[in-house]
Structures are given as structure tokens and as C-alpha cells.
Design a protein around this nucleic acid. Structure first.
Lengths: 199, 199
DNA sequence: CAAGTTACAAGCTTTGACATCTGTTACTCA
DNA sequence: TGAGTAACAGATGTCAAAGCTTGTAACTTG
């Protein structure tokens, strides 16, 4: 009987993240989470309406951490927008590579939610697109990037780099040449985005 | 007892394709194929060393048909290379959409082979890259597309359009806006590839 | 002897009984 | 009355036994 801290949503999230990491998304049960907290599984259901909601909350927290790390790069106005775009796309890839390697269980949990069309996945993509839009808008503002609509261009850039950001390609992120490949795609895209010397 | 045509590799391939279409890759057995041909399953093994080899042969034939259809577009020198590139990428997408819709079982069989790193999949990609390289080389030759190395550029274009050509995105090909999205990516890529007016 | 068959071992799937998990409800207790 | 528990029904998952499937080998036949 551990001295019981009163149960709150945060303690449940932390315990769930731990269980998810240990057992993986297929084996992690809410009974496991409750046992780790020293309560009955029904107690967990007082704080979260379903196992699905619990998983989403854990995954959202996990994704928000990487979103925040990328936001620092996106907002760094000391770096010219074209270079910032390239750096940001590389950081996005590096972050995903690290997650697959170091946190495969949580990554798998995210994959399951994305496949189920959970809002966690679409919201995360929307966050990333927002950052990309901000970089491109900065480029449009200082005249270094040519675009009519920063948000639309951001979507196109995100689509063209799908191989480096979409879950479906996770297996390919372990290939050694992947960073160089992203660099080449970036170069071609930036060639298209740079302001022309003449019409 | 149907009047038995002497068994040959081609008859086996046709029967396998039919069985694969009917039962799907998970349920299709070589006993089924043999039954459809009115022979024992061991007879099939006289012509193909394994079930895997049989499946690969069927899938290869199926992929070669679409490769040939695309080759006509790639080789059409009446169309300027930039426009030909765009048309080819759209045709590739349209062909895949049609296959997923009309031949989901054979498409699934292809997916299984690709996941198993079969040479069928890598060879098919190599064929497609060859066609793309030819288009880009034509553009380099007539001065309309800027590239140092047509094959390398073809790889970059293929990567940047992964969302429209890679199996992993098959589910997204049914979205209504997908053609327009490809168009936007093409435009950005072609902006990058077009010869500049000045350095 | 080319083309096919029957018979069989090893390895996978199905199957069905059994256990566990999810989510709810009626209850307890400070 | 808010926070948790015990008990439960229905869905889901597990596991071993039985039945197919794959691939091989020895055998048959025109």
C-alpha cells in the first residue's frame, strides 16, 4: 500500500504513458494503469470517459512536446525564411526518427490513433502546417519567397515532403541517405519558391 | 472433366490471377489454383518453385501492363517535356486509383510483395523512374528543364510526389481533391525545374 | 522421360472453450 | 456529495487441438 496521492488526471496520464511505453499499445490495459496507481480500474473511468480518450490525451501531450520544440525553430526570425524552412523540415524528420527509435511504443500508439482518424492526428498536422505557414509568410513579407497564399503553399510543401513527415514512411526514415534525400527535395522546392530575377 | 489443354506457365498465371481476384491474397491457395485447372497442386509446383514465385509472376505481369501504358505517354515527343511530366504523373495516379478501385485484391497482393521487399516492387519502381528520367532528359536536351543529372532529378520528383505514387498513401487516393493537390505540387516542382530567365 | 499423380512431413491457420478487458451500475465511506 | 469500490454483462483476446497448406519425394503413365 503506497501512501496514496489523491488521484488526478495528470497522475493518470503519467502512469498511462509509462504503461504504454512498457507494454506497448496492444498490451496496455486500463486495468494495468489502475494497478500501477493502486486503484480499481473504475476509478480511472471517473476521470476519462473511455480508454480511447485516455490514449488520446497521452498522445496529445507527447505530440505537443515536439510541436513546441519545432515552434522555436519556426519563430527564429534571426534565420532567413528559406534557410529556416530547410532547418525546420530537417528538425521535423530528426524528431520523428528519434521518436521511432527511442519511443517505438508511443509512436505505435500515435499510428493507431492516426489510422482511426482521431482528431489528435489531424490537430497535430494542423499545428505543424501553422508553423510552416508562418515561415513562408515571413518569406513572403521580406520578399525572399514567392507565394500568393502562404497557407496553401505550406500545404503543398508539406505534401511534397510527405516521405519525410508522414507516418506511412516511418520504416524508410532509418535508411542512411534519408537526410540527403530531404535536402535535395528542399533544394528543388526552394528553387520553385525563390523570387525570380525576371518574370 | 474439362477437355484438358496441356498445362503451361501461362495457363497457370491466368488461373492464379483469377483465383487471386476472387479470394484475395490471404485466402488464395495453390490447391485452389490447381483445382481451377483440374490438376493436382503438385503439378503447379513443376512450373513454379514456390507459391511466392507464382504470386510474383502474376503481379509482375499485372504491373507490366500499366508500365506499358505509361511508357506511351513518356515517349510522346509531340508534347513538351514539362507538360508531359505533368501528364505522366497524373496518369500514374489515375492508374493507381483505378487499380485500387477495380482490382483491390491484386493491389493487396502487390502491397504484400512490396512489404516483403520483393524485387517485383523495386523493379517496377525502377521502370517508372526510367520513364521519368527519359522525360526529364528530353527537357534538358531541348533546354526547357534545368538539371545536371536527369536520373537524380527524376528520383527527387518521384520522392516529392510520393503521396501520389507510394502504396502507403493508397487510402488518400480516394479523396476528391487529390488530383488538384497533385497539380499544385507539379506546379511548384516545375517552377523549380524551369530554366531561369537570368542566373 | 516429360508431365502428372498420390502420399506425406512440417508449419500455419482456424476453431472453440476459457480468460481477460471494457465500460456501467449500484453501492460505500469520509 | 465527491471519490472510489465491487460486481457484472458483453466484447475481445488467448491457447491448445484439429485441420489445411506448402513443398518434397517416390511412384505412374502415355
Amino acid at each position: 500500500m503506497p501512501a496514496r496521492i489523491p488521484l488526478d488526471a495528470n497522475a493518470i496520464l503519467a502512469a498511462t504513458e509509462e504503461i504504454l511505453r512498457r507494454h506497448g499499445p496492444d498490451k496496455a490495459t486500463v486495468v494495468d494503469v489502475a494497478r500501477a496507481l493502486g486503484v480499481s480500474h473504475a476509478a480511472v473511468y471517473k476521470h476519462f470517459p473511455s480508454k480511447q480518450a485516455l490514449r488520446e490525451a497521452v498522445t496529445r501531450r507527447w505530440l505537443d512536446r515536439s510541436r513546441d520544440a519545432l515552434a522555436v525553430i519556426a519563430a527564429d526570425s534571426a534565420v532567413p525564411p528559406a534557410r529556416r524552412l530547410r532547418t525546420w523540415l530537417h528538425a521535423l524528420l530528426a524528431g520523428k526518427q528519434a521518436k521511432v527509435r527511442e519511443d517505438p511504443e508511443l509512436f505505435a500508439a500515435y499510428g493507431i490513433l492516426a489510422a482511426a482518424h482521431s482528431s489528435v492526428a489531424t490537430d497535430h498536422v494542423a499545428d505543424l502546417l501553422g508553423q510552416l505557414t508562418a515561415i513562408i509568410a515571413d518569406g513572403a513579407a521580406d520578399g525572399s519567397l514567392r507565394t500568393d497564399d502562404a497557407a496553401a503553399t505550406a500545404r503543398v510543401v508539406f505534401t511534397a515532403t510527405a516521405k519525410f513527415n508522414h507516418l506511412a514512411h516511418a520504416a524508410e526514415w532509418q535508411n542512411p541517405g534519408i537526410g540527403a534525400e530531404l535536402d535535395e527535395v528542399c533544394s528543388l522546392l526552394l528553387d520553385g519558391l525563390h523570387t525570380r530575377m525576371s518574370p
